[in-house]
């Protein structure tokens, strides 16, 4: 699943066309009388800001036609950064207008129009809340489920108010056909929300899974094996992930992404996680037979069949997608060279230590353990995996391999930059960051 520049360019072009569509709509057909530059600039910023906000409902990483082009992880990074840009553009809209002509403050005056004033004033704290809770969710102590509810609700409210505001002002949307197109875009956004929160869970409800086994890998790390209940299950590519909802209903806010740790060839599906969060710490108490729902598979963290070899740079539980790929390679007698850099704090923290040792015999695999807190007598690598370690340990013929990075943020930042500085192309590097919010 190699990234390709033409495909990335195509999707970026589609995005730009859609983001600019409101401006194009404003200048075609009958147009109103000219107004000062800064008034129209304020309006233009509002239009593109609204377009990006509406497009945020598409870049949620759950569209299977888009995600493989970039990787679901990159789509979510795009979503996150685009949210910051939209925040700036949408707030610049009233700021530029009011700075140009203070009469525009009338839009916030409840004496002129109470409902309009309430809606437009409410958008400002809503946008700030959206930004703060998304960029600093853990710092503000918001749990993931509440964040999802707040994020979905506020986003929809802001887009709804913004688009209704556009029609109400009507300066550039005079003709009924322009209003129709604008309203159509709003309905499209609302459909995406209904699809995500109603239709998709409905489809999942018809394909339940049940827990087959819960296994302790090492203290605080558990593997959950699940099997389909009355259907054929899910085909995934090693390295991908699925969203999991535990319980009898898929209509739940509680939904978390987990990489498959099992081989593509296994009859059952396995996931491995650290019991650190509220959700994963419940895994160890799960009884076989417990119902759950899976949505997926997603993600482009997948080894290309034509690739010459692979380098995995993983830390802690970030080993799970690599484990799925290695187990699949074993099952398929894949003899391509693989190098696994695996960072942990101490030897006791190494998940799958015995199986990795066995895989080194079955595959053309080199495992390089790096410990943050090595015991006396440790002769392996120490400290974070960084550019120096990669320089020392990567063989010269690894330049054409594919690189897979998954682990704690500091390790990912260090190694991503190090690989780029070594001249490795972005097309060869895959990352997986689940802790996006």
């Amino acid at each position: 699943m190699k990234y390709s520049a033409p495909r990335v360019t195509k999707w970026v072009a589609v995005y730009l066309v859609l983001a600019l569509a409101p401006l194009v709509l404003a200048v075609v057909g009958p147009v109103p009388a000219p107004r000062p530059f800064f008034v129209e600039l304020g309006v233009g910023l509002g239009f593109v800001g609204m377009a990006i906000l509406a497009l945020q409902f598409v870049t949620t990483g759950r569209f299977k036609s888009i995600a493989p082009v970039f990787g679901a992880d990159v789509v979510l990074q795009f979503h996150r950064q685009a949210g910051v840009v939209a925040f700036a553009l949408v707030l610049a809209h009233p700021a530029v207008l009011v700075a140009t002509d203070p009469n525009y403050l009338e839009f916030f005056d409840p004496r002129v129009n109470l409902l309009r004033a309430i809606a437009l004033i409410a958008v400002i704290p809503a946008l700030i809340l959206l930004l703060v809770t998304s960029l600093w969710r853990q710092q503000v102590g918001l749990n993931y489920e509440w964040w999802r509810l707040i994020h979905g609700g506020l986003s929809l409210a802001v887009v709804f108010i913004g688009m209704v505001h556009g029609i109400q002002v009507g300066e550039h949307l005079g003709p009924i056909w322009k209003q129709g197109l604008w309203a159509g875009a709003l309905m499209g956004v609302m459909y995406l929300v209904v699809h995500s929160r109603v239709i998709r869970p409905y489809l999942m409800k018809r394909r339940p899974y049940r827990v087959a086994e819960v296994r302790e890998e090492n203290p605080d790390t558990w593997t959950l094996t699940v099997e389909p209940e009355g259907h054929v299950g899910m085909r995934f590519k090693a390295g991908q992930f699925a969203w999991m909802t535990v319980g009898d209903s898929p209509y739940s806010l509680q939904q978390h992404p987990f990489s498959f740790s099992s081989s593509e060839r296994d009859e059952t599906l396995s996931f491995t996680a650290n019991a650190v969060g509220d959700f994963t710490s419940e895994w160890k108490d799960m009884e076989p037979g417990r119902r759950l729902f899976l949505e997926g598979p997603y993600g482009g963290f997948v080894l290309d069949p034509d690739s010459e070899g692979a380098v995995f740079i993983v830390g802690g539980i970030g080993v799970t997608p690599a484990m799925s790929i290695l187990r699949t390679m074993r099952d398929m007698d894949d003899e391509r060279p693989v190098i696994l850099f695996y960072g942990n704090d101490s030897p006791d923290d190494i998940t799958f230590a015995d199986e990795l040792a066995a895989l080194q015999r079955d595959l053309n695999l080199t495992v390089i353990h790096a410990l943050g807190n090595p015991p006396d007598g440790w002769t392996g690598e120490e400290g974070y995996i960084d550019g120096d370690m990669l320089d020392r340990r990567l063989p010269p013929d690894s330049r054409n391999y594919e690189y897979f990075i998954c682990g704690p943020k500091p390790m990912m930042d260090l190694t991503e930059s190090a690989l780029r500085n070594k001249g490795i192309s972005w097309r060869q590097i895959y990352t997986e960051r689940f802790q996006i919010v």
Partner: peptide
């Protein structure tokens, strides 16, 4: 693709959109 690339891509798209909005404003004010 990388986190760093993605941020740059989105920021570049943001700049393009602001420039086009300014062109739009110039055309409308003309």
């Amino acid at each position: 693709m990388l986190y760093r690339d993605t941020r740059r891509l989105v920021n570049a798209i943001g700049v393009v959109l602001v420039v086009v909005a300014a062109v739009f404003a110039a055309l409308r004010a003309w």
